[in-house]
Design a protein around this nucleic acid. Structure first.
Length: 889
RNA sequence: GCCGGGGUGAUGAAAUUGGUAACCAUAGCGGACUUAAAAUCCGCCGCCCUUAUAAGGCUUGCCGGUUCGAGUCCGGUCCCCGGCACCA
């Protein structure tokens, strides 16, 4: 046909039906879809008792500057679930806000001389624009930022309630102290034991801090994990281990000091080994250590050494164990034998009693310590078939399940529980100890010696002492124009903040300058979204409607701290009568991290200089003939760079990919599709440029297919009741589509969105192969309507526009979720796998409703079986319905 | 160090949870279209042996076990990742 005639026909067609853009133009499509949702206020959530509610919450972002890939992944997962449930008929709430207080704002302030408030609000404005461009179904009317007084005043208000109830209290705590900058450092700011800015050796320092008694809730926080079937097992296990409930014995070693009778208290879970105690160890800050150091210069020096060094548990656990004897002896509580007290750098004052009993024979750490300092090792547990040797530590030395006491006088031959009972009875009789349940969990210290946080509402009065700020003076507003300079909290220099009148006596007084841990802000924001805008109360009746959160989504790195603090905080709110729910998050999805390859060059010539990291977007990869990677070069100079393997996207390794560049180049739908397709949500996700290209190609193909089918879909009728005879090929395609839909629906239930994306691709593959004329159009129209609905939670923009272009309806969000049809799935014959002795040997076609006996007979009669087990007698035939037949000979 | 998770083709991964290992993609190779390139479309693609195949053998980090049958369960071991209480 001549081109002129084709053009002529095209022009006629376009006048007959609404025209459709031929090329896939994500920018236009996404703008149109987003405008539609905006005008329809499609995501505004209102309380509606008639509908089942679905509160879908993603962990709010820290406004660090721009979105990173982890955010895109997190919020796409939340958006897929939100849109899916909306189409399923749920009343969906998906809010968004900003975890806006924190250290990075102060660092940026120091670097740029800009107040943290301005930096934070600028970042929020930019990141909000980014979130909007990704098309998330968010109710922006509920937006909050934790640095707003109307939010954090309720931190202060609840803190005061906790103070009244004794849940909040004052105690000394240990912090990292930079002696040059004269300031407290965060753990992150301590690098190899030195301050990050000054390079000075960091010291430990004891300062007064406010603590929250999370330990009062330890037992409930532990037992209530069983009421959370929607939480991943691994998170519940981690929380249970973190709380660390243990049944043990608290007992004392009596001693005389300065003419007075005293007791050195310790706690142990291995009281059955008490007869093996050969020394005790106390923390450097323990009163006994301080006493002994008075006339012992070397010990005093050692105690000073212990006070340097790290406060971090990982460092404590891996450092070299050191100790020094105090020369002080205590009495063994059962034998009255003299036991020497040592100072150990591995004993912490803040944990338990600040003192431990040492049983080198049955505790690995004590064993090493005793070997190092030549202390006695006395085995008191024996396990049948094992011989104790002092040469090296053996796993069984610490075995309490199979051992019995030996070398233990009256306790000999007792097993663990009986030994504990007998020993506790004797300790009790002497008033020297009893059984006790303890927790590894420690109270939550919330005081931070930093500016950019929620002020702790306390006033220090020279006459009245510590005075809580009265409710009617809340909020204590943080001045928002300070610029920190690294030399400590700038609030200390702000007279307008600092100076106030004592609420009790009216005298001149000073405000507390410590602010709250940012984990406080994030411990209840989910409840505040439900009561947005209420200036009179922290939460109101709307929170009773929405809470608990039906689906919480966030990084696995928050598995313990944030989630535990949030659970604790909501239990406190419950006990204050503010909320009715027991647990804030009914279901939890912990997404994996986003990773990318790390490229670097070591400094040339010698060790001086830093490693330079190059962004993967600046690196070209080389491949050999077989397609294997054989090198990488920097694009700018063509010289090779080294690969540092795959790691989480981070600023320090310069391996982040800017989501904005991705959205600008390919559109939001491609970014969203790739994020869902590349890995299941709970696993780590590796970045791949070519994977993004592939996602974009798929969406282009989808658009092109929609364009090609435009007229026939608009003109298509219903799929005929029977697709047999000449239409058998159509029946196959239709079955494939419905099978994939069935699988996808199952996978959505498992939150396995990568295979949902894969199912969508398979459906498009099937549709493209469908014979087009006649009844094919009906099958295609049906299949495409399934595909668009199934895919719409992942790539909502392209699906929304195609849905309208192809005349399915005005609003895809209002369409019902697709379900597979039994008629489309039905088939007469099925194929079974044929195994002989568990080895795959062939296939077997049988009727779909064949009985076990019929299948067995057909299998034995098949040529495959005849060939492979000629003559050998059949021992057993295993038939797995719908799957396989295994013949054992 | 302790707690938790992971390891499957060249790569991301799948396997309805003990029943055909590698779906769907990516990369690569070959072809069509094109003056050419891009884009698009079609075909091949775990490894070994081979008489080149519609035969056979091997393969889910490594070693061992349970089972008719193990990527999946059990024991051991190596490596990687997350958390460890002031990064968020």
């Amino acid at each position: 046909m001549a081109p002129g005639i084709i053009d002529f026909l095209k022009r006629i067609l376009t006048t007959l039906t609404p025209s459709m853009q031929e090329k896939y133009l994500p920018k236009e499509i996404e703008q149109a879809a987003q405008q539609h949702w905006e005008h329809a206020a499609a995501f505004r959530a209102t309380e509606d008792a008639a509908k089942p509610k679905y509160y879908c919450l993603s962990m709010f972002p820290y406004p660090s500057g721009k979105l990173h890939m982890g955010h895109v992944r997190n919020y796409t997962i939340g958006d897929v679930l939100s849109r899916y449930h909306k189409m399923r008929g749920f009343n969906v709430l998906q809010p968004m806000g900003w975890d806006a207080f924190g250290l990075p704002a102060e660092n940026a302030a120091m670097a740029n001389g800009v107040p943290p408030a301005k930096w934070t609000y600028d970042n929020i404005a930019y990141m909000k624009k980014q979130l909007k461009s990704l098309g998330f179904a968010i109710d922006w009317e509920r937006e909050l930022a934790t640095c707003q007084p109307q939010y954090y005043q309720w931190n202060q208000w609840l803190f005061l309630r906790m103070l009244e109830k004794g849940i909040a209290y004052l105690k000394t705590g240990t912090v990292n102290w930079d002696p040059v900058d004269q300031t407290v450092l965060a753990n992150e700011q301590v690098i190899d034991g030195r301050g990050w800015r000054t390079g000075a050796l960091v010291e430990k320092r004891e300062i007064p801090m406010y603590y929250l008694k999370i330990t009062d809730y330890a037992d409930e926080l532990l037992s209530a994990l069983d009421t959370l079937p929607g939480w991943p097992e691994r998170v519940k296990t981690m929380q249970a281990n973190w709380i660390g409930k243990s049944h043990g014995v608290r007992f004392a070693f009596p001693y005389r000091l300065g003419g007075k009778q005293e007791k050195l208290w310790v706690y142990t879970t291995r009281a059955d080994t008490i007869m093996g105690v050969t020394f005790c160890a106390v923390a450097a800050e323990h009163p006994l250590a301080t006493h002994a150091a008075r006339n012992n210069l070397k010990l005093a020096e050692f105690i000073e050494e212990c006070k340097r060094g790290s406060v971090m548990e990982a460092d404590m656990a891996t450092m070299e164990k050191k100790g020094m004897p105090t020369g002080i002896f205590v009495d063994h509580p059962l034998t009255a034998k003299k036991i020497e007290v040592w100072v150990g750098n591995y004993v912490l004052m803040g944990y338990g009693e600040g003192a431990v009993m040492a049983v080198p024979a049955h505790d690995e750490r004590d064993f090493e310590f005793a070997k190092k300092y030549g202390l006695a090792i006395k085995p008191v547990i024996s396990v049948a078939g094992q011989t104790y040797s002092l040469d090296a530590w053996q796993e069984w030395y610490a075995d309490k399940a199979h051992g019995v006491c030996v070398n233990s006088g009256k306790y000999n031959d007792l097993d663990y529980p009986s030994a504990i009972d007998a020993i506790v009875a004797d300790l009790k009789a002497k008033d020297l100890g009893d059984q006790q349940i303890t927790y590894r969990l420690r109270d939550w210290g919330i005081s931070r010696q930093r500016y950019w946080g929620c002020p702790i509402p306390i006033i220090h009065c020279p006459s009245c002492g510590v005075v809580p700020v009265p409710d009617d003076q809340l909020p204590v507003v943080l001045p928002d124009d300070c610029v920190p300079d690294g030399s400590g909290n700038p609030l200390r220099k702000r007279a307008d903040f600092l100076d106030c009148a004592c609420p009790k006596c009216g005298q001149a007084a000073k405000r507390e300058t410590d602010t709250m841990d940012t984990f406080v802000d994030s411990s209840w924001y989910y409840a505040r979204y439900c009561s947005a805008g209420n200036t009179q109360a922290m939460v109101d009746a709307r929170s009773d409607y929405w809470m608990p959160v039906d689906q919480y989504i966030g990084g696995i790195e928050h598995a313990i701290l944030h989630l535990l603090y949030s659970r604790f905080w909501s239990k406190v709110m419950r006990d204050l009568g503010l909320v009715k729910y027991q647990e804030p998050f009914a279901n939890l999805l912990t997404q994996g991290m986003v990773l990318n390859e790390i490229f670097f060059r070591k400094p040339q010539g010698g060790t001086a200089g830093r490693i330079v990291y190059y962004n993967p977007t600046e690196v070209d990869l080389q491949f050999d003939d077989k397609g294997n990677r054989c090198g990488a070069t920097l694009r700018s100079d063509g010289q090779p760079v080294e690969s540092g393997g795959i790691g989480t996207m981070s600023k320090s390794k310069n391996n982040g990919v800017d989501p904005q560049a991705l959205v600008d180049q390919y559109g939001a739908d491609t970014a969203r599709f790739f994020m869902m397709f590349a890995a299941p949500p709970e696993q780590t996700l590796e970045w791949s440029d070519s994977g993004v290209e592939g996602s974009f190609r798929f969406l282009k193909r989808l658009w092109a297919f929609g364009h090609a089918m435009h007229d026939s879909v608009r003109g298509a009728g219903k799929v005929p009741e029977k697709l047999d005879g000449a239409l058998a090929a159509l029946a196959d395609v239709r079955r494939e589509i419905h099978l994939n839909l069935k699988q996808a629906n199952y996978d959505i239930g498992k939150h396995q969105f990568n295979t949902v994306a894969s199912a969508a691709m398979k459906i498009l593959n099937a549709l493209e192969k469908t014979p087009r004329p006649g009844d094919g159009a009906a099958v295609i129209a049906e299949g495409l309507s399934i595909l668009l609905r199934l895919l719409s939670p992942i790539t909502p923009h392209i699906c929304h526009v195609l849905w309208r272009e192809l005349g399915y309806g005005d609003d895809l969000l209002q369409a019902p979720w697709p379900e597979p049809l039994a008629a489309a799935l039905a088939q007469d014959e099925i194929e079974l796998v044929l195994q002989i002795n568990g080895k795959l040997r062939g296939n077997l076609r049988v009727a779909a409703d064949a009985t076990r006996e019929a299948i067995e007979a057909a299998a034995l009669a098949s040529t495959t079986v005849q060939k492979h087990c000629e003559g050998k007698p059949t021992k057993k035939v295993i038939v797995v319905p719908g799957r396989l037949v295994n013949i054992v000979v």
